[in-house]
């Protein structure tokens, strides 16, 4: 299945689409994309996760890295996560810090 990642930039926000399986093998690619996206200093980071079939703690660590890299002022949106991935995000307490939404609705 593998892992695929694509980026779109809009004014003040960056949208990253993740699909496939985000494990420790794939996480460095995600981290690289975050580093590039952070350079443009977006105000919002939107992660489209509707096609993400699997996410390990390595993926969660990249989300922590994204927050720490981009600063507390950047809003993180995690959109369309499937049941098990959503469950992992909640179990790990991420719902306190990111907007977990089914479809993107900037706040």
């Amino acid at each position: 299945m593998g892992f695929n990642i694509s980026v779109e930039g809009g004014p003040g926000e960056a949208t990253i689409k993740l699909s496939g399986e985000l494990d420790a093998a794939a996480a460095p690619r995600f981290k690289e994309v975050i580093e590039k996206v952070a350079e443009a200093k977006p105000l919002r980071l939107v992660l489209l996760m509707g096609e993400l079939e699997f996410m390990a703690s390595a993926g969660l660590r990249v989300l922590i890295f994204a927050r720490q890299k981009m600063g507390a002022g950047v809003s993180l949106y995690v959109i369309g996560s499937r049941g098990p991935v959503l469950s992992t995000l909640r179990m790990s307490g991420f719902h306190h810090s990111v907007h977990l939404q089914e479809t993107y609705a900037p706040e």
């Binding site: 390990a56 703690s57 390595a58 922590i64 720490q68 600063g71 993180l76 307490g93 306190h96 810090s97």
Partner: peptide, 16 residues
Amino acid sequence: AKPLEERAIGGLGIFL
């Protein structure tokens, strides 16, 4: 419950 910017990186994998 900590915000992401205060989270430690380790321990999550074993926890899950």
